[in-house]
Simulated assay, not measured.
Amino acid sequence: MCGLCGLLNDAPQWSDPLQQQALPARQRRLQQLAVLNRALAPFRLRLSDVHGSAWLLSSPTGQQQIINRLEQLWVEAERLLKQPIDPLDSHYLAALAPLEAR
């Protein structure tokens, strides 16, 4: 898919009902971005918003990938890292523990 088509994809995300609906859409998206970045931090990956309709996943080596749907996020993260990600790995969970205290 070309970049422009990805930006035009305004379909709802699976996680939308989990967010506080009383907040404006932009604020909900920024909250979602903060949670995702906390989950990606142990891998030194960073996610940024692209015009409110896509995400840009960046690696510490400068590689980048546009993410149109959150379902793609972990697949692309594994591709950038060149290794599988186990969300139940004890080292990963331990790295998340200090972030939860904030």
Results as ranks from 00 to 15, higher is better:
Ser48Gly: 12
His51Asn: 15
Ala22Cys: 13
Asp49Arg: 05
Arg46Lys: 12
Ala25Trp: 06
Arg44Ser: 09
Phe43Gln: 03
Arg44His: 14
His51Ala: 15
Ala54Lys: 03
Arg26Ala: 12
Leu36Met: 11
Ala54Val: 10
Phe43His: 04
Ser53Cys: 13
Leu23Cys: 13
Asp49Trp: 04
Leu45Ile: 08
Leu45Ser: 01
Leu47Phe: 05
Leu45Lys: 00
Ala22Lys: 15
Leu40Cys: 05
Ala54Asp: 06
Val35Phe: 08
Trp55Gly: 00
Leu47Val: 04
Leu56Asn: 15
Val50Ile: 12
Ala54Phe: 05
Ala39Met: 05
Arg38Asn: 06
Leu57Val: 06
Ala34Asp: 07
Val50Trp: 05
Arg26Pro: 09
Gln31Glu: 10
Ala54Cys: 11
Ser48Lys: 10
Gln32Tyr: 04
Arg29Trp: 04
Arg28Glu: 00
Arg28Thr: 00
Val50Arg: 06
Arg46Thr: 08
Leu23Phe: 13
Leu45Phe: 07
Val50Tyr: 05
Ala54Gly: 09
Ala25Ile: 10
Ser53Pro: 07
Pro42Asn: 06
Ala54Ser: 12
Leu30Cys: 14
Gly52Val: 10
Gln27Cys: 07
Leu33Glu: 01
Asp49Val: 07
Gln31Pro: 05
Ala34Cys: 09
His51Asp: 11
Val35Thr: 09
His51Ile: 15
Asn37Gly: 03
Ser53Phe: 06
Ala25Arg: 11
Gln32Leu: 07
Leu33Pro: 00
Gly52Glu: 10
Leu23Arg: 11
Arg46Met: 09
Leu47Gln: 01
Arg46Tyr: 11
Gln32Asp: 06
Trp55Pro: 00
Ala22Ile: 12
Leu33Asn: 01
His51Gly: 14
Ala22Pro: 12
Arg46Cys: 09
Arg28Asn: 03
His51Val: 13
Leu33Thr: 02
Asn37Cys: 04
Ala39Asn: 04
Leu45His: 02
Leu45Pro: 00
Leu40Ser: 03
Arg26Ile: 14
Ser48His: 14
Leu33Trp: 02
Pro24Ile: 12
Leu47Lys: 00
Arg38Gln: 07
Val50Lys: 06
Pro24Asp: 14
His51Tyr: 13
Leu30Trp: 10
